[in-house]
Design a protein around this nucleic acid. Structure first.
Lengths: 317, 317
DNA sequence: ATGCTTATGCTTAAATTGAGCATAAATCAA
DNA sequence: TTGATTTATGCTCAATTTAAGCATAAGCAT
């Protein structure tokens, strides 16, 4: 197999548009948020600036210019180049490179026509902090059951229902918060979100949740899933926290992102044994009950931590 | 924040070259391999074909045309667009989208000038199946110590050594096979791999391991790390196995990828309790000892499995 | 003081994981 | 044929990790 240049002409430059799409996440008052434009229906995006050294630096510069502050953590999500991808001028082929960025909410200088949208306004079924939300049992489950039933043939029917049960945790399946993308994709496939339709979306029979432009809600789901995975083996939550915080505040941020309730005592044990934080010596007075010790992120941890994270029966020695 | 089009002209098409780079992995006779060209010094790559519906399908078509067989599993790795990225004609800016693909070795029709390169020929230090390889204690550790020492200032010296110890598992740090990329990057930064140099690389003082063109070895390290992570929570190994296999063969494949020895009895317990496989009823005669039962991958598992994988103190109920 | 709220230390039970013993069932060398 | 060797497989055990919850501490409001 030689270098796979079909013919040398195809290797010439192509008239493509390269866009960056940012999923900028922060936690505002215990609610996980994403930066949006156009009334909450679009993710901010912009052209890739060739003068920059790298994609990362281009994105960083652009975000900093717009938000007035630096982004703590940036991670590439996915590159899309589908032919049917909707571009602004709908003429040219577009390549979109999406990024996840974490920032502290208080540090954002608000810009006109942009704002923080709550994750769970877009994905109400993803918030299980207070148990299974009504939308799931009342709407999603019956609709998905109907969708499964509407398949032709016993096999396909069972397969659809099996898939739904598996990603939404119906029947004896466990809920897995990391499957946010799969859940959105399933709802899309089942025609239960507005983005599944073109010109005239049905007003009825859709599942609650704010729709977004093109595939932006799908990209947001990707970001949520990625962050929910990441948070478990890398101390990224700290990028969303103020410099000084209580353990409960930290817990609330984790719960906000993961969409699940956390056992307070065990959470604190985990955090402490990982030595991620250190006491400042001060206490927070305004907690409503006994004052909580204040903590800060340990500086040493910032330099790349090595983590555990094996699920293989590894030989010890 | 409006849609971030600096000016409308920058939004016009740009003369960029979009390439796909494939890391095609298989396991040949217990050895994890990657498909290479140019005598093992390059990863196969080719231009993105605009006529395809998506990046994924473009890559799939191209790989199938070249290898004569389908790729079981494809996953996007990373998109590079650094200015200093070396392109074939070195004139134009290139965007490279790299992919990881898994395939069964026996199904590849060999092509001229291409072949399977063993992972560990490129990364000898990543193979710990038989304990810590000599190259680590004899060469890597002393060289990294030297590199750390050569920093100016006590702080930077300690920091460098700390980083080295952490990713390579020196001193009381545990070896983490998922840090393959970080290890390669550290060696690069320390000037211990040929790719760290331009025209005249030093012949001496490099760490063993075959160098590759441009950043291809870095991309390969990314793929290895990704696969080592993935294998723990998604049953991707099966894409590399023949339809029928023994548990030891499966174990050997996992060991090959993870670079670590696995406890046989516990491995079998894990596999069985996850219900990933089912007995065929047959036994393999040629195992050299007692015949082993033959297994196949359970079909039901192919449809998206939901997994466990939490490391948060989740509330049960 | 009394009761409410949040914080924090500590115990217990269950589940998971790393190791290894013991036996089974084949091949091979004498 | 026999015993050594090799791989397969069932099962136990102990250490560790994880989920839950009890109990006490220390603020505030009344």
């Amino acid at each position: 197999m030689e270098r796979m240049t079909g013919s040398s002409e195809t290797h010439k430059g192509q008239d493509v548009q390269v866009d960056l799409i940012a999923v900028l996440v922060s936690v505002v008052a215990g609610a996980p948020c994403v930066l949006t434009i156009r009334g909450g229906h679009m993710l901010p995006s912009g052209p890739f600036e060739l003068e920059h050294r790298s994609l990362q630096s281009s994105l960083r510069a652009w975000v900093e210019r717009q938000t007035g502050h630096s982004v703590g953590y940036i991670e590439q999500l996915y590159t899309f180049a589908d032919r049917d991808r909707i571009t602004d001028d709908r003429a040219r082929r577009a390549i979109s490179i999406s990024y996840l960025g974490l920032t502290r909410a208080d540090e954002l200088k608000a810009q006109p026509s942009s704002g923080w949208g709550g994750w769970y306004d877009y994905f109400p079924w993803e918030d299980r902090r207070n148990g299974v939300p009504a939308v799931e049992s009342d709407i999603i489950e019956p609709r998905l059951r109907g969708w499964a039933q509407s398949a032709s043939g016993t096999g396909p029917r069972a397969e659809r229902w099996q898939r739904a049960a598996s990603v939404f945790g119906f029947e004896d399946h466990a809920w897995n918060e990391e499957l946010a993308l799969q859940r959105y994709e399933l709802l899309h496939e089942a025609g239960l979100v507005q983005e599944a339709y073109g010109e005239a979306p049905p007003v009825e029979n859709l599942v609650p949740g704010i729709p977004m432009f093109a595939d932006h809600r799908r990209i947001l789901a990707t970001a949520i899933a990625r962050l929910r995975t990441k948070i478990k083996y890398r101390p990224v939550v700290f990028e969303l926290m103020p410099p000084i915080f209580t353990l409960l505040q930290l817990q609330r941020a984790v719960e906000a992102l993961s969409g699940r309730p956390v056992h307070k005592q065990n959470f604190r044990r985990l955090i402490e044994q990982q030595e991620l934080v250190e006491e400042t010596g001060e206490v927070a007075a305004d907690t409503g009950g006994r004052p909580a010790k204040l903590f800060r992120f340990r500086a040493a941890v910032h330099l790349e931590r090595t983590f555990l994270g094996t699920r293989l029966p590894i030989t010890r020695s």
